[in-house]
Computed example of a mutant assay.
Amino acid sequence: MGDPFFTSNIYPLLFMIIVGVILFKFFKGVVQWRHNNKQPILTVNSKVVSKRTKTSRQMHNFRDNQHHHAINDFYATFEVENGERLELLLTGKEYRELEEGDIGKLTFQGTRYHNFERMTEV
Score class of each variant (00 low, 15 high):
20 G>A: 04
66 Q>N: 09
60 H>I: 10
111 T>D: 12
64 D>R: 03
54 K>Y: 08
119 M>C: 10
40 P>S: 10
38 K>G: 06
8 S>N: 10
13 L>D: 09
113 Y>D: 08
104 G>S: 06
90 L>S: 05
98 L>C: 08
114 H>W: 10
3 D>E: 12
121 E>H: 08
26 F>N: 12
56 S>K: 04
87 E>S: 11
83 G>N: 00
40 P>V: 03
25 K>E: 15
35 H>W: 15
89 L>C: 00
64 D>N: 06
98 L>D: 09
85 R>G: 00
121 E>M: 06
48 V>S: 03
60 H>N: 10
39 Q>L: 08
32 Q>N: 15
6 F>N: 14
8 S>E: 08
45 N>V: 00
24 F>P: 03
100 E>A: 12
113 Y>T: 02
112 R>K: 07
54 K>V: 11
84 E>A: 07
84 E>L: 06
91 T>V: 07
81 E>D: 15
104 G>V: 06
28 K>A: 11
52 R>A: 04
87 E>Q: 12
69 H>P: 00
2 G>I: 15
29 G>D: 07
76 A>Q: 01
115 N>R: 06
1 M>W: 15
52 R>E: 06
108 F>Y: 15
21 V>N: 10
37 N>F: 13
50 S>L: 03
71 I>S: 04
6 F>S: 14
40 P>Q: 04
122 V>T: 10
61 N>R: 03
60 H>P: 00
118 R>H: 11
58 Q>Y: 15
105 K>N: 12
99 E>P: 01
99 E>M: 11
11 Y>A: 14
46 S>R: 00
48 V>I: 06
73 D>G: 01
113 Y>G: 05
72 N>V: 08
60 H>L: 11
55 T>K: 07
87 E>L: 02
61 N>G: 04
12 P>Q: 14
1 M>V: 14
19 V>D: 11
96 R>E: 15
29 G>A: 13
33 W>Q: 13
114 H>D: 06
61 N>S: 12
79 E>K: 06
79 E>I: 05
53 T>I: 05
92 G>P: 03
38 K>M: 07
69 H>E: 04
41 I>T: 13
78 F>W: 02
56 S>D: 05
36 N>H: 07
21 V>A: 12
97 E>T: 09
79 E>G: 01
62 F>I: 13
11 Y>S: 13
55 T>M: 08
41 I>P: 01
104 G>C: 02
44 V>R: 04
105 K>T: 08
84 E>D: 08
35 H>S: 13
115 N>Q: 10
27 F>G: 05
102 D>T: 04
75 Y>H: 05
21 V>S: 11
117 E>Y: 11
13 L>N: 09
46 S>K: 02
32 Q>H: 11
28 K>G: 02
3 D>F: 08
69 H>N: 01
